[in-house]
């Protein structure tokens, strides 16, 4: 009796083990819908499940329904973003090239690189950098965006623009980078991301429109106890990098000047932005 019992128990155990092994080997991937919706799969399982999704209508429906649940969890965590983030992002956006629309929006599409990436690879630069260390990530994205923009231009300004992209990334990456912006009632204004420690700023003009015929928009830094210093002529809304900003730099200003620019401002500023809130203008 005892032998039989043990034997029976043993067989049950064995069967259970086989069952479990069988389940493990042939585990239906659709059982992963819930962890997938929670982003709780490892990358390998995620890819496997996404392949499965392409052929499993039931799973697709289930994932959709579950996404409504996780959306509730997501929204419940909402808090206001830091105020500074807005200007940083908007500055970055002005300097960042968008990805061309993809012909197909299937999950595998992102692995098949699109045109900007191919352009980027020609120069040995990844066009779509992803999370690396800390703050470098977003800056690399910006830089790559500008690069992609620069790369479509085939003129000899290429090197210059690439250098500018690096400069911009450099300023935005500074640990003490701060931002400010100002706009007048007509929507004309300046945005700035500045780093006191690097004595640099990225200046983004907006809403200025084109200068009158035969004239140019010139950007200046106004300094306490010194003459305004030219930061160059504006080219539409292309960001400008200002170097060697001293602590005395009080404000930025744009004036309308004769084509080619002036040594000193000859007209009153059409827009102005104080640098006090970004750590300058002592």
């Amino acid at each position: 009796m005892r032998d039989t019992g043990t034997g029976l128990l043993g067989r049950i155990r064995q069967a259970a083990l086989e069952l479990r092994l069988g389940l493990r080997v042939g585990r239906p991937p659709h059982s992963l819908a819930v962890p997938y919706a929670l982003d709780a799969l490892d990358p390998h399982e995620t890819r496997r499940f996404e392949r499965h999704l392409e052929t499993c209508a039931r799973c697709t429906d289930e994932v959709r329904a579950l996404a409504a649940d996780t959306l509730r969890l997501a929204r419940a965590a909402s808090v206001p973003a830091p105020p500074d983030l807005r200007e940083r992002i908007l500055t970055a956006v002005r300097a960042t090239e968008q990805e061309a629309p993809e012909p197909v929006a299937d999950p595998g599409a992102r692995e098949r690189r699109t045109a900007p990436a191919r352009r980027g690879r020609l120069l040995g630069v990844p066009a779509v950098p992803v999370a690396l260390a800390a703050s470098a990530a977003v800056l690399a994205l910006i830089a790559a965006g500008i690069l992609a923009f620069a790369l479509v231009r085939t003129d000899d300004r290429l090197d210059e623009e690439q250098a500018a992209a690096r400069e911009i990334a450099h300023v935005l990456a500074a640990p003490d980078a701060r931002s400010a912006d100002a706009r007048d009632a007509r929507g004309r204004g300046l945005g700035v991301v500045a780093s006191r420690s690097r004595q640099q700023a990225v200046v983004t003009p907006s809403g200025l429109g084109g200068p009158p015929d035969g004239r140019a928009h010139q950007l200046w830094v106004m300094r306490a106890g010194a003459a305004p210093r030219s930061l160059g002529l504006l080219d539409g809304e292309t960001p400008v990098v200002a170097d060697d900003l001293s602590a005395r730099a009080k404000s930025l200003a744009v004036t309308v000047e004769p084509e080619g620019g002036s040594e000193r401002p000859t007209t009153s500023p059409i827009v102005q932005l104080t640098l006090e809130s970004v750590g300058f203008g002592e």
Binding site: V125, A136, A144, L147
Partner: peptide, 13 residues
């Protein structure tokens, strides 16, 4: 730890 374009090209976006 800042590299200008220090992304890992092997990783998909």
């Amino acid at each position: 730890m800042r590299s200008e374009f220090g992304a890992d090209p092997a990783r998909p976006p």
